[in-house]
Lab assay of single mutants.
Amino acid sequence: HNLTITQGKLFFHYNPKLCLSEIHKMEEVSGTKGRQERNDIALKTNGDQASCENELLKFSYIRTSFDKILLRWEPYWPPDFRDLLGFMLFYKEAPYQNVTEFDGQDACGSNSWTVVDIDPPLRSNDPKSQNHPGWLMRGLKPWTQYAIFVKTLVTFSDERRTYGAKSDIIYVQTDATNPSVPLDPISVSNSSSQIILKWKPPSDPNGNITHYLVFWERQAEDSELFELDYCLKGLKLPSRTWSPPFESEDSQKHNQSEYEDSAGECCSCPKTDSQILKELEESSFRKTFEDYLHNVVFVPRKTSSGTGAEDPRPSRKRRSLGDVGNVTVAVPTVAAFPNTSSTSVPTSPEEHRPFEKVVNKESLVISGLRHFTGYRIELQACNQDTPEERCSVAAYVSARTMPEAKADDIVGPVTHEIFENNVVHLMWQEPKEPNGLIVLYEVSYRRYGDEELHLCVSRKHFALERGCRLRGLSPGNYSVRIRATSLAGNGSWTEPTYFYVTDYLDVPSNIA
Rank of each mutant, 00 (worst) to 15 (best):
S203W: 05
S203P: 02
P205W: 03
N206Q: 02
N208E: 11
H211C: 01
R218I: 07
Q219Y: 15
L225S: 07
L225W: 13
E227G: 14
L232F: 13
G234A: 06
K236M: 07
L237S: 05
S239D: 09
T241A: 12
P244Y: 12
F246V: 07
E247H: 09
E247W: 06
E247M: 10
E247L: 11
H254T: 13
Q256D: 10
S257K: 06
E258V: 07
Y259N: 12
E265S: 06
C266R: 09
C269Q: 04
T272P: 09
K278W: 09
S284G: 10
S284K: 13
F285M: 15
R286A: 14
D291L: 11
Y292V: 10
V297A: 07
P300I: 06
R301G: 07
T307G: 14
T307A: 07
D311K: 15
L321E: 09
G325K: 15
G325N: 12
V329M: 12
T333P: 03
T333D: 09
A335D: 13
A336I: 08
A336S: 12
F337K: 06
T343M: 07
P349M: 10
E350Q: 06
P354T: 12
F355C: 13
F355S: 09
K357W: 02
K357T: 07
K357P: 12
V358S: 12
E362V: 13
S367V: 11
S367Y: 06
R376T: 11
L379V: 07
C382P: 01
E388N: 13
E388D: 14
S392G: 01
A394T: 12
A394K: 10
V397S: 13
A399K: 12
A399L: 12
A399Q: 11
R400P: 01
R400C: 04
T401V: 06
E404M: 12
K406D: 07
A407C: 01
I410P: 05
I418P: 07
N422Q: 13
V423A: 12
M427H: 03
E433K: 13
P434M: 04
N435V: 00
N435L: 00
V439D: 05
E442Q: 06
S444C: 15
R447M: 03
Y448T: 15
E451K: 05
L455P: 01
L455I: 09
L455F: 11
C456V: 02
C456K: 02
C456R: 03
S458N: 06
L464V: 08
R466A: 05
G467A: 04
G467Y: 03
L470F: 04
S474H: 09
G476Q: 00
S479A: 09
V480L: 07
I482G: 00
R483E: 00
L487N: 06
L487M: 11
N490T: 11
G491A: 05
S492I: 13
T497H: 09
Y500T: 10
Y500D: 14
V501K: 02
Y504A: 08
Y504E: 15
L505G: 13
